[in-house]
Design a protein around this nucleic acid. Sequence first.
DNA 1: CTGAAAGCGCTTACAG
DNA 2: CTGAAAGCGCTTACAG
Lengths: 343, 343
Amino acid sequence: MPKAAITISDVAKASGVSKSAVSYALNGKPGVSDETRAKVLAVARDMGWKPNSAAKSLSDARTRSVGVVLLVDDADSFGAGMFTMDCLAGLSKALDPREYSIVLRMTAGGAAAACHIHEDWIASGKVDAHLILGVELGDPRLTLFRNHPETKALFISQRAVTSGLPTLYSADDEGARMVVRHLHELGHRDIARIAGPEEYVHTLARDNATADECAKLGMHCTTLHGRYMAEDGERLCGSILEFGQRPTAIICDTDVTAIAAMRAAAARGISVPDDLSIVAWDDSPSCLSATPTVTALHRDVKAIGRTAGDMLLRMIDGETVGAEPEPPYRLIERDSTGPANVA
Amino acid sequence: MPKAAITISDVAKASGVSKSAVSYALNGKPGVSDETRAKVLAVARDMGWKPNSAAKSLSDARTRSVGVVLLVDDADSFGAGMFTMDCLAGLSKALDPREYSIVLRMTAGGAAAACHIHEDWIASGKVDAHLILGVELGDPRLTLFRNHPETKALFISQRAVTSGLPTLYSADDEGARMVVRHLHELGHRDIARIAGPEEYVHTLARDNATADECAKLGMHCTTLHGRYMAEDGERLCGSILEFGQRPTAIICDTDVTAIAAMRAAAARGISVPDDLSIVAWDDSPSCLSATPTVTALHRDVKAIGRTAGDMLLRMIDGETVGAEPEPPYRLIERDSTGPANVA
DNA sequence: CTGAAAGCGCTTACAG
DNA sequence: CTGAAAGCGCTTACAG
């Protein structure tokens, strides 16, 4: 069984034609008679021939792969975990039919380390295109790809951050407005938000949109920032509930903080959703298994990955790609939100 | 900035020597004077030269990448998610210093589809080695790699499944015994287990080891099988609590079912850990945020990935690799287990 | 120590 | 329609 790798020359010999004839036949190009072509194809199949990937890449300058560098944080391997996984699944799905693979690297060295890997890939021609996630303001990867406009690179990011670069931008703005409007309809006028760290650009995007929509609707919103951890959620929720005027609803930027906030409320005898409504920004299975179940902003992460893959393929095909929006959020109403109870 | 890819010939021209001299210099091989070498290195660095990856691969028959095919299940994108992610992170960490990348594909087509991808990779020389996860009994990938002993492939699996093939085998056996002994020390004699689906080989491994250790220690264990879902955990726990002699402890094969089981117990007024101890097989953040916190078997998944990476590199270097154990489980005692309360 | 040459496996103008 | 040739960018014996 384990025959040494068979080449186009072997096929040529076996079918009694020249190497070039084999190449033409195999690639469906003109230059061979139908008869020859059929024979070559049959022989190639029988011998189990596949084009050598390195040789093909060298000769046609295509690697048939897109590069992704993941930033891993030793602490929170959890936060980004599922998003990344689903996103890769979607990407893979888009790439699959074209026989493109993902070349994956992970680094704990942050944006700078990721940037070096991309540089290497550019210089070595390791990938046909780059996908960049988790960009921050002043990220060196922005500069890198601005300086290499000939390199095909797509960012999944906020619109404001990557301006001028091909981007699949998030719908955080719309999401924020959606939540605020939902709470407004339920009669809430005084709300709070347990937001993520201010370093994240999407946090700022949400901050802005939330504030803007609240202003439009005449609502008041207090925003506190913290990490995406249960303890932060509990602590911030405590602050919100104990100081000043208590809001009737809280928006939490993540499922973890939302569930932590519910616990903090329960600990104080505050009932959700009767006394307090809670909305989680990221939907997840834990939103479903919590008591009560948590109303959440849901987005189809696989679809985001798939869209990214499609955009990358278009770039590889030579098309110019600009900024395109990701699929919209959907608000999934569950049991943690209800009419405002203004005591 | 965006200079067209620069090649070894450019460097040769710029430093006034031949291409071969450049190659020797760049690869630290003898054949050039120290002076020439230094000059070439300087020029190459200045020009930002990197070896073209396809050319290098073609010439030395090494792709500097290992291939991984992930089986994605449209339904449960969650279950395997974090394990896979952490495992990849560990793998990447091992591969990084050698400048190896992961070539990643994901498929919803199960083992058969994955098998085809591996076949393609073998024929096209796309990767230097393969890593295979989530193998089941009768998996076509076992046959494929048995028929291709010259291909470097490592399985992360159960020892029994892959016999003869290079394998990083799991410590499920030891894990099971560890939990049983822990419960025995706490005085439990009559226990139950909410296990995973019987299709999974690791389920059987756990079944066997649990039964064996119980027998040794004179303990009784009832085992029920179900999916890794909250509803299954609740249902099975209900069955266990309501029929026959109620056990004093339950081992759940996953964090999800453990937490569901705790809920089922609470719903029946059974207190954890006073009336019933609960152990989760897989540790996770939710074990920490549950009330009470859940005693769990914890394994260092990144270390598993890293070990796999090291083994793969050794295989790539020509070493023969057999079956090696993964790092052992650790039992993390939290608040969901306590002394047996034999009413 | 150094250069010219052949080869890795494929593709693609270029003559027959 | 078909074959011989050159080239993709690198490595590596092989003569000077």
